[in-house]
C-alpha cells in the first residue's frame, strides 16, 4: 500500500469542521471516488471530527488524509488523532445509541457503517486514533 500527497488539518474548534470536510472531499475527489462514496466518506469524517470536538483535548487534535493504493484498488484514508482522555469501553462506544454526552450516539457506529475500513484505537489518558478508508468502486 502506498500513500499519495497527504493533507493535514488541525481540529481546534467547530469552525474547523468545514475545513476538515473540504480536505476530505478534495482528497476523495483526487482518489476518483464517485458521488455516493465521496458523500459517505465526508459524512463519516465529519462525525469523527465532531466526536473529537465533543470529547477530546483539542491541543494536538488533527486529521491526515491521504490517497491509498493496493494492487487491486485505490482509495482514500483519513486518520484522526487526538490526545484526549481516551475511550473507556470501545465496544460500548461502537454501539448504536450509546452516548456519554446525551447525544444521539450515532457518530462512531455510523461512521463505521459508511466506510469500507474502520479502526478505533484508544488508550486511557493518552488519546484516540480513528482511521477511516473508502475504496473507489
Amino acid at each position: 500500500m502506498s500513500s499519495g500527497t497527504p493533507g493535514h488539518y488541525l481540529i481546534r474548534s467547530e469552525r474547523d469542521l468545514s475545513g476538515v470536510r473540504k480536505l476530505l472531499r478534495s482528497q476523495a475527489q483526487l482518489a476518483g471516488l464517485g458521488t455516493l462514496e465521496l458523500t459517505k466518506f465526508v459524512a463519516a469524517g465529519s462525525e469523527i471530527a465532531r466526536n473529537i470536538l465533543k470529547y477530546a483535548d483539542l491541543d494536538g487534535a488533527s486529521v491526515t488524509v491521504s490517497l491509498i493504493e493496493s494492487k487491486l484498488q485505490s482509495g482514500v484514508r483519513a486518520v484522526f488523532v487526538d490526545l484526549g482522555p481516551g475511550i473507556e469501553d470501545l465496544d460500548l462506544a461502537l454501539q448504536d445509541g450509546y452516548s456519554t454526552s446525551g447525544s444521539l450516539g450515532i457518530g462512531l457506529p455510523g461512521a463505521r457503517r459508511l466506510c469500507d475500513e474502520f479502526s478505533l484505537e484508544s488508550e486511557p489518558l493518552k488519546g484516540t486514533t480513528v482511521t477511516l478508508a473508502k475504496w473507489r468502486r
Binding site: T35, L36, L38, T39, K40, A43, E47, D96, L104, I106, P109, G110, R113, L114
Partner: peptide
C-alpha cells in the same frame, strides 16, 4: 435530498 445524501443519512441511522 440527493440520493447519495439519502443513503448516507439512512446508513448513519437518521
Amino acid at each position: 435530498i440527493q440520493p447519495a445524501v439519502a443513503i448516507t443519512l439512512v446508513e448513519l441511522g437518521i
